[in-house]
Amino acid sequence: MQLPTVAEKAHIEDLRLGDVPMQQEVELVSIDLPMELAEPLLERGVLPGCRICPVQSSPGGDPVVSVDGSLLALRRETADCLCVRLVSSFQDVG
């Protein structure tokens, strides 16, 4: 497996959960939040490597995502701190 180039890496790190369109499943890469704020996410199984899919937008524009069959509502500020990458069909993750 080839290491990603700097450009590719920057691209990967740039994609945030907040930018992902509805019904597009993505994989969580990293959580760019202080531990105190990340812990509630971790406890609910939102960990690097998990699959997340935005399924709904609240009237205030905050995302509702599906993780492991549970629905979680986040603030968009939080969603913007979750780095994700697209899951392509040939990539085997998890």
Partner: peptide, 12 residues
């Protein structure tokens, strides 16, 4: 406080 987060589980 620094901005807090809000996380709500939506049960079926």
């Amino acid at each position: 406080a620094s901005p807090t987060s809000f996380l709500m589980e939506l049960p079926p």
